[in-house]
Design a protein around this nucleic acid. Structure first.
Lengths: 239, 239
DNA sequence: CTAACTTAGTGACACACTACCACTATGTGA
DNA sequence: TCACATAGTGGTAGTGTGTCACTAAGTTAG
């Protein structure tokens, strides 16, 4: 193992899959790669990310959080590592590896990204199945698919969807987000019992007024740590 | 984003946390780093791994499987990605990142590693708590801790421990491995009902003779894909 | 003012899997 | 043949989820 420093080093990047939820769909934030440069995939949508700045990023997570802050303005959202993808063929410039992160953004913070374009224009895209309609740069479609699958999976036994909600929300709204993510209806009573028994939420002293019976408002007790349920959601609801 | 190729590239490695189970403990395979070289952490135990061979490794997983094969002789064990660790400080040679994998080796294949030293001597070390007694190179103690925690967690709702068993085993043996991983006793009937109802095992037409009543032998129906239980193990057993 | 409508929220019981514990089964060795 | 050890089971309690019909509380149309 002498001369280890002489090993060729792969190109290394960090990419972030940033999710949010509209009223009817899961959405992912994508950026437009510039045209007229020598970089691959010009004028193509891609996951936010880029090279590690070895001079300023102390570690991978700091790098991911920096990119998240730049794109969404959010300082401390829910973030977890998704995995890494590396191969000789994923980047035309040579052997490359990316460290992919996975983030959930509150509905309150959805506007920022499209209003503050920064160096690259950004847009929310609806996720349909486990993909978006647009063609993505590199292997980002595969990374997105892994992120969506991971999220869908965790919906069944964690409280992750709660991190997509605005700061105050009703149980019905939370249920709707679950249903969008799982792509199936859930039974109201079972859902409410499960959530309320989990100690995830704090009841607020006010209700959301609407076209019908006002609904109790809640907020998250803990904005960063999810709850893990001992039992997964198994069955759906009617209608 | 012009001139992206000029970004300094971090040192990039792949490390593999290889677990097996003895009769009484979870064990991890470590290799001894050579002394008398310029490489950091000479004469120190470390996770098996090393630099990506960009000329021969097509992707990260292939690189991990190559290292696994070299160390354990096993071609297709259970492998999953654990995560990646990267920072300016984890390697004295500069900014470095490692892609960590996580593997479970059948008790049948434990002997190979210590009998075929290859370029570096290898040894199984007992895992106590989430660590080994020896000091490890780099941030490998942290990676090991993450791997142990992931494994412990998954024991509660997957069939992962089954991949640590020899090709034929009894339910009591499987339960003992669960108990070692969870560090608590389990209730026999509950455990057996859960496992048998899961369709994980295939009954063999023979029994294991021992000092007492012979026990039914089983083998895995699927050597690669784990089972995910809808409910986690919650409570323990007596004694 | 009242009825129809819509969404919020609950009561009561069925169901499935796990937990518990005492019991039986089948071998060895003194 | 009896003590002992481990394998394996029967029966029932416990706990969270699933089901569904019901009540609650607002709006809107007449």
């Amino acid at each position: 193992m002498a001369g280890t420093l002489s090993f060729p080093r792969p190109l290394t990047t960090v990419d972030v899959v940033i999710f949010s939820a509209s009223a009817t769909a899961l959405e992912v934030l994508l950026v437009r790669r510039p045209e007229g440069t020598d970089d691959p995939f010009p004028d193509t949508w891609a996951l936010p990310g880029g090279f590690i700045d070895t001079a300023h990023d102390n570690d991978l997570e700091a790098c991911a959080l920096r990119k998240l802050k730049e794109k969404t303005g959010v300082r401390a959202p829910y973030v977890e590592q998704l995995g890494s993808w590396g191969s000789a063929s994923r980047d035309p410039r040579g052997w490359s590896a990316t460290h992919a992160y996975f983030s959930l953004i509150s509905a309150d913070d959805r506007a920022f990204a499209e209003e503050h374009p920064g160096s690259q224009p950004a847009r929310w895209f609806q996720v349909e199945g486990a993909r978006v309609k647009e063609r993505l740069a590199f292997d980002h479609a595969e990374i997105l698919k892994a992120a969506v699958n991971r999220l869908r999976n965790k919906v069944e036994y964690t409280s992750l969807p709660a991190f997509l909600m605005p700061s105050e929300f009703t149980l019905s709204e939370l249920q709707r987000v679950h249903e969008v993510l799982l792509d199936r209806t859930l039974e109201k009573k079972a859902f409410r019992t499960r959530i309320l028994a989990s100690n995830l939420l704090e009841e607020l002293p006010r209700k959301k007024e609407g076209a019908n019976r006002p609904a109790q408002l809640y907020r998250l007790k803990n904005k960063k740590a999810p709850i893990y349920f001992a039992r997964a959601i198994v069955k759906g609801g009617g209608s």
